[in-house]
C-alpha cells in the first residue's frame, strides 16, 4: 500500500516543456515513475524525449487524461497561471493535483479552495516539494515521485512523513533511511498559508494505511494546522507520531521564507504548537537532528 500514489500511478506534468518542469520530469522518469504525458497549451503534438523515454505533450489536460489514462498531475507552471492549471486538472477529473509552484497569491488560492468544495480531486500544495512513494529497487528506484524531492535518499518502508517544508522533509527522510526504517509515503503539503491538503488530512490517510506503522509530522510557525492535527490525533490516530516544529527562534511578525511561516499577533508560535502536540501524546523532537530518535521513542522501536 502507501498513500495517494504508488508505482502504478500514471502522472502528467503541466509545464513539462519549461526548464524547471522538464528537469524534474526527467528525474521522475529516471526514478521509474510513470510519467505518461505533458501538458503545455500550444505545444500539443510535441514529444518530450529523455534517454529512451518518449512522452507525448498535449494542449489540454482533458486530452492528456483521455489518451493516456493519467490520474495525477504535477503543476510546474508560473504563479500567474497556476490557478488556471489547478482548476483545469480538477475539471479534467484528476484524482490528485500536486502544485509545486511557489508564489501563488493567497487571494487566488482562497478562490481555488472554495471552487474545489464538493470536488473529488485532492490538491496537495502549492509551494511544496510534492509526494514520493519509494520503490523497491536500488536507492528506492521504481517508486512514484511527483515533484522535486531527491528520489535516491528514500527507502521503501514503514514511516509516513508529512511536512510543510522541502529540505526539512529530506532531513527526516534521510534520518529514517539511515536508520533502516524507510518510508511508506512522504507528502510535502507546502509552506503557503492556504493549501489543499493539511497535516490532519495526511494523518487520516496514514492512519488507514496498512504499510504505515508510525508517522513523522513536520510543522513550522504560523497558523494552527499542527494544533488541529494534534487534536484529531489524540482522539483518533492509532499510530505513534513524532514531530518537529521549526521556527522557535524566528522573530515575530517576520515571514520566514515561506509565505505561511509567520507569527502574527502572538499566534502560531513554535512554543504553543509544541505544547499542543505534547498534550496530544505526540513525541516532539527539540532539534531537527533528533527527528529520527524521537520517532524511535514514539514507536518504541530499537
Amino acid at each position: 500500500m502507501a498513500i495517494l500514489v504508488d508505482e502504478n500511478t500514471k502522472v502528467l506534468v503541466q509545464g513539462m516543456t519549461g526548464s524547471f518542469g522538464g528537469r524534474h520530469a526527467e528525474l521522475s522518469l529516471e526514478y521509474g515513475t510513470q510519467v505518461v504525458a505533458g501538458v503545455t497549451p500550444g505545444k500539443g503534438g510535441q514529444v518530450f524525449e529523455h534517454e529512451n523515454y518518449k512522452v507525448p505533450v498535449f494542449d489540454t489536460v482533458e486530452q492528456a487524461a483521455k489518451q493516456t489514462g493519467a490520474t495525477a498531475s504535477a503543476i510546474f507552471v508560473p504563479p500567474a497561471f497556476a490557478v488556471d492549471a489547478i482548476l483545469e486538472s480538477v475539471d479534467a477529473g484528476m484524482d490528485l493535483v500536486v502544485a509545486i509552484t511557489e508564489g501563488i497569491p493567497v487571494r487566488d488560492m482562497m478562490k481555488v479552495k472554495a471552487a474545489m468544495v464538493g470536488s473529488a480531486a485532492r490538491l496537495v500544495g502549492p509551494n511544496c516539494p510534492g509526494i514520493v512513494t519509494p520503490g523497491q529497487g536500488e536507492n528506492s528506484h521504481g517508486g512514484c515521485r511527483i515533484g522535486i524531492a531527491p528520489g535516491y535518499i528514500h527507502k521503501r518502508g514503514r514511516v509516513g512523513i508529512v511536512s510543510r517544508s522541502g529540505t526539512l522533509t529530506y532531513e527526516a527522510v534521510w534520518q529514517t533511511t539511515q536508520r533502516g526504517y524507510g518510508q511508506s509515503t512522504c507528502v510535502g503539503i507546502g509552506g503557503d498559508p492556504i493549501n489543499g491538503t493539511s497535516h490532519l488530512d495526511a494523518l487520516r490517510l496514514f492512519n488507514e494505511d496498512d504499510e504505515t506503522e508510525a508517522i513523522i509530522m513536520i510543522g513550522e510557525i504560523g497558523g494552527s494546522a499542527e494544533e488541529e492535527a494534534a487534536e484529531w490525533a489524540a482522539q483518533h490516530c492509532r499510530k505513534p507520531i513524532a514531530a518537529f516544529i521549526a521556527g522557535a527562534t524566528a522573530p515575530p511578525g517576520r515571514r520566514m521564507g515561506h509565505a505561511g511561516a509567520i507569527v502574527s499577533g502572538g499566534k502560531g508560535t513554535a512554543q504553543a504548537k509544541k505544547k499542543a502536540l505534547r498534550a496530544a501524546g505526540i513525541t516532539v523532537a527539540e532539534s531537527p537532528a533528533e527527528i529520527g530518535s524521537a520517532l524511535v521513542e514514539a514507536a518504541g522501536w530499537s
Binding site: 529540505t167 526539512l168 513550522e220 521549526a246 524566528a250 521564507g257 527539540e286
Partner: peptide, 26 residues
C-alpha cells in the same frame, strides 16, 4: 542554508546548543 524550513531549523539548533543565530538565510 538551502530551504526555508531547514533555515529556520538551523537557527533553532544553534540556539539548542547554546548559541545565538545572527540571521535567517535561505
Amino acid at each position: 542554508v538551502n530551504g526555508a524550513g531547514l533555515a529556520m531549523a538551523t537557527m533553532d539548533i544553534i540556539k539548542h546548543y547554546g548559541g545565538e543565530p545572527a540571521n535567517f538565510l535561505d
